[in-house]
Design a binder for these strands. Structure first.
Lengths: 130, 130
DNA sequence: AAAAGTATACGAAAGACTTCGTAATGTCAA
DNA sequence: TTGACATTACGAAGTCTTTCGTATACTTTT
């Protein structure tokens, strides 16, 4: 067991976290099956990764039953925030605005999503004027 | 020499690309000095990375003078797009909108930037209605 | 021309991450 | 209980990336 998960997850760990966030507490078998819907991974590979994640503090592990049940020990939004920060710094030299523009420009977002974003911006502008 | 740079740069390579994008064509010495403003890196480390980048096709290399001059062989926006795509997929399960909201919510963006983004959104909405 | 300084080339070590083989152990059905 | 099957534990190999030591060659200075 380890300390608080200050470190960001690796790519594989993030992939597993996504599954845990979506499914909730899951066994290695369940996670591995889910992973294998996208790509081929050996069972022990997934097991090892999840053990490492438990050790790092990225996942909790319930060992009461023989089949250990893992659950995410970190919040999705927290991790996203951490990853986002780093990504903006590295890929966009710290300019979140530039990144947002690229994202909006090239990804298709639904009209509802666009409206939502616009509302958020207006809200932020209003606040900053007060 | 290698083929087209289909692959995304590693973190270190991206760090060097940022410098090449900013400075334009540069010698290893210049890039290394710039790098060392942020963290300690050995000269030959930087050299090796830049050689690898030239080999991968991420950088061009002019060997006419004894001091080789390197320049970015890939466009900043192209790389950003590629990295962004992957990042949104991995960290936000493909939801660019969700990522944008997180980015706007937690990074400080100037009013001008917000306006710019808002304008972009309105433009996109207008287009999609036509 | 010798010495000192600067550059590139090469290879390999070090480190981080991923992958999996094998062993040990537990579970269940016949 | 025995055999088939599932699960965890452990360790190590493989891969990718980073880092740097050393050799070699060129340039400048003295």
């Amino acid at each position: 067991m380890n300390k608080e998960p200050n470190k960001r997850p690796t790519e594989s760990e993030l992939e597993i976290l996504q599954i845990l966030w979506q499914r909730g507490p899951s066994s290695v078998r369940e996670v591995n099956d889910k992973l294998n819907e996208r790509r081929e991974v050996g069972y022990t590979t997934t097991l090892k990764l999840m053990q490492i994640m438990a050790d790092k503090g990225l996942a909790h592990r319930n060992t009461e039953s023989r089949t250990h049940i893992y659950s995410a020990a970190v919040q999705e939004e927290d991790i996203q925030q951490r990853l986002l920060q780093r990504f903006v710094d590295r890929a966009f030299r710290g300019s979140a605005a530039k990144m947002v523009m690229q994202a909006l420009g090239n990804h298709r977002a639904s009209e509802e999503e666009l409206d939502e974003i616009k509302a958020l911006i207006e809200q932020m502008e209003k606040r900053s004027k007060e």
